[in-house]
Design a protein around this nucleic acid. Structure first.
Lengths: 334, 334
DNA sequence: CTGTTAGCGCTTTCAA
DNA sequence: TTGAAAGCGCTAACAG
């Protein structure tokens, strides 16, 4: 690989001049510029990015930590982040945290160790304390789908409470009175918020959540399946089920089918997230849209603005959910 | 951030010694080693990875190019690659190629420019010529889901022909005689191979593909939807439909429902890939398993072995598909 | 407008 | 077993 030195020799100029034409900025005669450009082309020169990073103290790469790289929820984040950052010439380095505190911390260390200029974190298990501590360090970071007290300006989140409310409000409006709920892990902020929203919808209708009709699960399809089975086995009657995400809702739908319940006739179901395949289920799943792709883009813009000084960029910190009404829930037949 | 120099001063040794204890290898007294370690801890020292890269001429990062970062197919690749590489302390830099030749080339350049030690390419639009040329360069790379003549040893692929054969063979065995086919873009190697396998299954049964029952589509759900509509509108009768991937199959299922066709009674459908949600469709989709997550892992191991000299590692170059029989196809009722 | 030069932080001979 | 010193390739003052 050719170096800047060889280019300078071939072009008959100094290192500095080559550097100047590379970095566009400084004053260089069109004539010398051409000589340099020609030399570069001839040698198929490419700047060594490690050397640049070292000299500039900047790596032009940003680290992204998510729980998983696959799955209907994380993929769209990644894609939103990548498209925005790539346009700006920044590199995206990924790490999966697998929803385990130790692994997520390691992920953060790993990314910082790599010299990432900034981090985008979609991590549930990291404690607020850890994040506050991290914020004292020199690597700027933005968080997705959480709000850490004291760090609000670097959080990009959705109103999960409102989303939970909207989903359950629909059920209530459709006349349901016995409503079961399968939550995510309640130590997770979003799971807690969604459930709180759900309860608010019930309360406004003068209802309360029957504890026997609440099942705390894990946001996974299998968890939704076993959740519904558990609820059915409790012997309590219910005409509707709200799930804290679509994956659990789809699991619940499978269990319902297996138990011979037809949806929405025997049981109305609503989900949350509006993952890609929610439309493809039969019946199509009523859910709440989580604009995660868009939020990924915003996180990228936050980074561009706050870590790379692109002043002009603007971004949203707070997103609102939207109810997507499809065919898995219906008005109760009286 | 502390540098190696400050550590050496605090520990009262030279730079070289600090470097030695970092790199475990050389002979250092336990005593001096301890002094150095203590100093590192006290200063919260972390090596600057750009400086290391520059000195070692190695970045410890590998670039991964896929068409999209989301979607049921690419997510699992990424996750397989990341888990394997991360274990080895290597960084994963991602780029999306969006199935456009220009963008994919740019992606490759981008990744090479970043100084990636190796590349993992899951790119359909890159021509064999380009890849052969690329192979002359100094960045080693491995390709997923394609076989480039002359570069076989750096290709990790699935027997798409066999997969296509298995899917259609099932339909034939179930007694279907009028079989429609929705292919992927036929300029893509895998689409072509799958279709060829399909034709072979027909031929062995003494059938040929009716050109009017062939629809070339785009591997996308909407393409599957419109594909089936088109086939139905042709007026030709058919009792089964093979789709070159699950996304198109799910689109076709939606069109079928819309047209009042019930599956599998009125029409048997098979897909390809066994994406995560194939099980969740109603009826569950019969398909061919594409072990893409596993193949991603193998690509990572290829890199570890061939770019990082981990001799002991072994990997598979060639994978076999597996038929996953579910409920979207049934024996024809005679 | 262009050249000289001093680093950026680390690895690695070569000597001691 | 340890230290001195020469790069790795590039940027950014500072002179001219």
């Amino acid at each position: 690989m050719a170096t800047i030195y060889e280019v300078s020799k071939l072009a008959g100029v100094s290192l500095a001049t080559v550097s100047r034409v590379m970095n566009q900025n400084a004053y260089v005669t069109d004539e010398t510029k051409k000589k340099v450009l020609d030399a570069m082309k001839e040698l198929d020169y490419r700047p060594n990015s490690a050397a640049q990073s070292l000299a500039l103290n900047r790596s032009d790469s940003v680290g992204v930590l998510v729980a998983e790289l696959d799955g209907p929820f994380y993929g769209p984040v990644m894609s939103g982040v990548e498209s925005e950052l790539r346009k700006a010439g920044k590199h995206v380095i990924v790490a999966a945290g697998h929803d385990e505190e130790e692994t997520e911390k390691e992920g953060v260390e790993f990314l910082i160790g790599r010299g990432c200029d900034a981090l985008i974190l979609l991590a549930e298990t990291l404690s607020n304390e850890y994040l506050v501590e991290l914020a004292k360090g020199s690597t700027p970071f933005v968080m997705l789908n959480r709000t850490t007290p004291g760090l609000e300006s670097q959080c990009i989140s959705l109103d999960n409470h409102l989303g939970g409310y909207m989903a359950s409000k629909l059920l209530v409006d459709q006349g349901h009175r016995e409503i079961a709920y399968i939550s995510g892990p309640l130590w997770k902020h979003d799971a807690e918020d969604r459930y709180a929203g759900h309860k608010q919808a019930l309360e406004e209708a003068g209802l309360t959540q029957d504890p026997e009709l609440l099942f705390e699960s894990d946001y996974r399809e299998a968890g939704g399946s076993s959740g519904l089975l558990h609820l059915i086995n409790s012997g309590k009657k219910f005409t509707a089920l709200a799930c804290a995400n679509d994956e659990m809702a789809s699991g619940a739908m499978m269990s319902a089918a297996q138990k011979g319940l037809s949806i929405p006739q025997d049981l109305s179901i609503v989900g949350f997230d509006n993952v890609h395949y929610a439309r493809l289920l039969t019946p199509s799943l009523t859910t709440v849209e989580f604009p995660i792709h868009e939020m990924g883009k915003m996180a990228a813009r936050w980074v561009l603005k706050n870590a790379y000084g692109k002043k002009k960029l603007s971004y949203n910190n707070y997103f609102s959910p939207k109810l997507i009404q499809r065919h898995s829930s219906k008005a109760i037949s009286s």
